[in-house]
Design a protein around this nucleic acid. Sequence first.
DNA 1: TGCAATGTTTCCAAAATATGAAACAACGGA
DNA 2: TCCGTTGTTTCATATTTTGGAAACATTGCA
Lengths: 111, 111
Amino acid sequence: MDERALLRYELKTEIFKALAHPMRICMLEKLKERPWCVCELAAEVGIDKSVASKHLSQLKSVGLISDEKRGTLVEYRLAAPCILDMAACAERTIMGNRRKRLGLEATESVL
Amino acid sequence: MDERALLRYELKTEIFKALAHPMRICMLEKLKERPWCVCELAAEVGIDKSVASKHLSQLKSVGLISDEKRGTLVEYRLAAPCILDMAACAERTIMGNRRKRLGLEATESVL
DNA sequence: TGCAATGTTTCCAAAATATGAAACAACGGA
DNA sequence: TCCGTTGTTTCATATTTTGGAAACATTGCA
């Protein structure tokens, strides 16, 4: 595979990398309901605000969320509606697979 | 966030982790067209067969592909149809985002 | 202006992933 | 059976990602 092709695949991979962390999936789940600021989210999930800021930055860099300054705080909100369908597909796939192997039930969606 | 919630998010994250590597996206793209065996794919993309085997193993472990033994070789094929819609969503999101920032054009789908 | 609150960036250590060589296993044909 | 082909696993190494503390920046308010 040549350099050019690799670069193309790396670009295509970016959004999945952004989703490949439990804390970021958790944050998207929160953001699905309403906008949150960084310190709210950090407190909600129990991590340092600097870590929360970095996770949100990654989600923003691939266009899944957007931010808006409001005084001293920054409000983040879900920006890509199709992420919901995407997560639903992921959930069906992984849980269908689990069910086949372990007999578990899928009771929740990914997001 | 408690232990139980973390485990739930980790499960939800698995499929995105499997997709979070350019070589695995490339392999899925090949598998979209027809089944391939390990050494074929390894040669096609220019990596060691052990590495190819491990990447395929990861895709299989989350149910995106399935395998079938045929004599000395193992044939892998795409197993989760919705992965195509999912990738299309990813492509729209990331390329829409790129276009906004850099003025690039989206000419190909992710898979 | 001085201060408190909110976010981001930088730095370093720790954890998770990826790579390639080599050993190992399974299979079919000569 | 012996050998060549195909795949998987193991091991050590290298790379990437993550987490948390601290420094820094920005804003609003007293």
